[in-house]
Nucleic acid binder design. Structure first.
Length: 328
DNA sequence: CGTCTATA
DNA sequence: TATAGACGG
């Protein structure tokens, strides 16, 4: 879920058009999860091919990415590696919520309550090996770059932005700021109220507004609670900032509160400030493999040929231009 | 979630 | 041009 920093950031509105020509890093598990949970029919059943394979994620990746590239926005997908040990508790909690949801989904479906069924079905979405591998295969055929992180996708995606190799990270998760992303885009989506509430948060502005260093922001996060520690009961973002302003560090704040932390703060600092990242990534957009895409999506997974061809066209249009750009 | 279509 | 609904696989 990330840190609860909604109240202390000051996002600025931004238009989809302003992203023209920009490379954006996207936490792949994040978007794939959204496709898996959102792209369902009335009773909560996801999109499937005739063999029963789930295809919601392939549909989402294909049609979202092609539309972005048509708008000259270049998404780079960043896949999760191994999560830090400290995240175990957060992960276990998620698994138990998933189990509960599965039960409630089955109950609702049994009783014919479609609305409830759909709601709980969305929470049962699972990013298994097959989902991840099929997503990577599709991206490769599309000519869209992806990066396999060693650690958390969010950390790698943020690192690439901090290096200036990408312009912003697409995320709903404030962790990106602790990870050092200079810009994060919130409410990024294409359909419906597109760009209606698209927002950008600047790390520099955030730190300046709050009068904190990034190191101190991480300390505030630990007081509030992160995916890696529980946080102090009763301390939210605003109180956390006051404490760090007053005492300077997490340790001194804890001492003043007469509180202790269950884990070594330095271990969490390391996760946020010095994550194990890949540095030799390749962000080149390539020409889509048209025939293989048609084979894969229409042949293997029963996608509509006309719609698929349309999307491939959008990919081709821009890749032609982007490869041309690289000559200058 | 994202597309296309109907409707005003 | 903007919004609502049906559908995608």
């Amino acid at each position: 879920m990330g840190v609860k920093f909604k109240d202390i950031t000051d996002p600025e509105p931004i238009e989809m058009n302003d992203l023209k020509g920009k490379i954006l890093t996207v936490d792949a598990s994040n978007v794939i999860y959204k496709f898996l949970s959102g792209m369902r029919q009335g009773d909560g059943t996801p999109l499937k091919d005739m063999n029963g394979n789930i295809t919601s994620h392939l549909n989402g990746i294909m049609f979202q990415t092609s539309s972005l590239i048509e708008k000259e926005i270049k998404p780079v997908y960043v896949f999760d590696g191994k999560a830090p040990e400290l995240k175990k508790k957060t992960q276990e909690k998620r698994i138990s919520i998933k189990k509960e949801s599965k039960q409630k989904y089955l109950e609702a479906k049994q009783s014919g309550d479609n609305e409830k069924a759909r709601k709980y079905a969305a929470r049962t979405a699972e990013l298994n090996h097959e989902i991840i591998e099929s997503s990577k295969k599709l991206l490769k055929l599309m000519g869209v770059p992806y990066v396999q992180s060693k650690t958390e996708g969010e950390a790698q995606a943020s690192y690439m932005v901090s290096k200036g190799d990408a312009w912003a990270v697409v995320s709903q998760d404030y962790d990106c700021l602790q990870f050092g992303a200079t810009r994060m885009l919130k409410n990024f989506k294409l359909s419906r109220s597109q760009s209606k509430n698209l927002e950008i948060i600047s790390l520099e502005k955030t730190l300046k507004d709050l009068d904190l260093t990034r190191e101190q922001l991480v300390d505030v996060a630990m007081l509030v609670g992160t995916d890696f520690n529980k946080g102090v009961y009763g301390i939210g973002a605003k109180k956390g900032i006051k404490l760090i302003h007053k005492y300077g560090t997490l340790e001194k704040s804890l001492e003043a509160l007469d509180e202790t932390m269950e884990v070594d703060p330095n271990e969490i600092r390391e996760i946020f400030l010095n994550p194990d990242v890949v540095t030799d990534y390749d962000l080149k957009f390539r020409r889509p493999k048209k025939e293989k895409l048609l084979d894969y999506l229409c042949g293997e997974h029963d996608f509509d040929e006309h719609r698929t061809n349309n999307a491939i066209q959008k990919l081709q249009l821009k890749t032609a231009q982007t490869s041309l750009e690289s000559w200058f």
